[in-house]
């Protein structure tokens, strides 16, 4: 399979407002795809549509060959929400063990996922007592336990220091090299260069869908932030 995710003519309304206008894109298997755009542009709505928790108005979203949200996909798709969704009144390890049980994994798998996100020394702390960055890594650990084929991460690097951010990106690429497909949303442009492919979204419309090099070339600048500004100006012109 070439594409882990295929989105066709996706339209999503939230309330009376149309949040996504006719989005069509493909996400290649085993790649790290960055989903970028200003806040309020529809990144989270697109992510929720791919995970299958968003009511959509029209269009189709196909994930690993099945319609998004199919029950079989719940075993193969990992989702990390923007706000770290772990139980603040449980320790990191207790959280991880619960998610391990949901995916029929062992306590050892839970320990491994915690070590993988660099929380080994904090595993017995209550999630509610962790720093924001640690808590979002605890949330990430819970998604890694099930060895998902598709891992969807909504702003996973917010609040992380530069060293940890580098570690997380190294881990994302290691997962991709092992065949996992990753979708990572961010509004930090310096992270865009680390992705294999970029989707730039603005006001619910896709502005660019290319590898970083192609986006730099199209805008005629090496600076991705500048390139995005140029593309957005061209799109609204």
């Amino acid at each position: 399979m070439d594409h882990a995710v295929e989105v066709r003519n996706l339209v999503v309304d939230r309330g009376k407002r149309t949040v996504l206008h006719d989005i069509t894109c493909d996400i290649p298997t085993g790649s790290v795809t960055g989903l970028l755009g200003p806040s309020g542009s529809g990144k989270t709505t697109l992510i929720r549509s791919i995970v299958g928790v968003q009511v959509i108005k029209s269009g189709t979203v196909t994930v690993l060959g099945s319609p998004a949200g199919e029950s079989a996909l719940r075993r193969t798709v990992g989702y990390v929400t923007q706000a770290p969704s772990v139980y603040s009144d449980l320790s990191v390890l207790e959280n991880a063990r619960y998610f391990a049980a949901l995916h029929h994994r062992t306590a050892a798998d839970a320990e491994r996922a915690i070590t993988d996100v660099g929380l080994g020394t904090a595993k017995n702390q209550l999630a509610g007592n962790l720093s924001g960055g640690q808590r979002s890594r605890a949330s990430l650990a819970c998604a890694l336990i099930g060895d998902p084929k598709l891992l969807v991460l909504d702003e996973p690097t917010v609040g992380q220091d530069p060293i940890l951010r580098a570690d997380l990106w190294a881990q994302f690429h290691a997962l991709a090299a092992a065949g996992t497909t990753l979708i990572v949303s961010s509004h930090v442009m310096d992270e865009a260069g680390r992705c294999d492919r970029l989707l730039l979204i603005r006001e619910g419309r896709l502005v660019a869908d290319d590898p970083p090099a192609a986006i730099r070339a199209a805008a005629g600048t090496d600076d991705l932030e500048q390139a995005f500004l140029t593309l957005i100006k061209e799109a609204s012109a």
Binding site: V53, S85, Y87, L102
Partner: peptide
């Protein structure tokens, strides 16, 4: 409100 419910509903639970 913590988002854990939405997350749980994306797992095999």
């Amino acid at each position: 409100t913590s988002g854990t419910l939405e997350r749980l509903l994306t797992t095999p639970l």
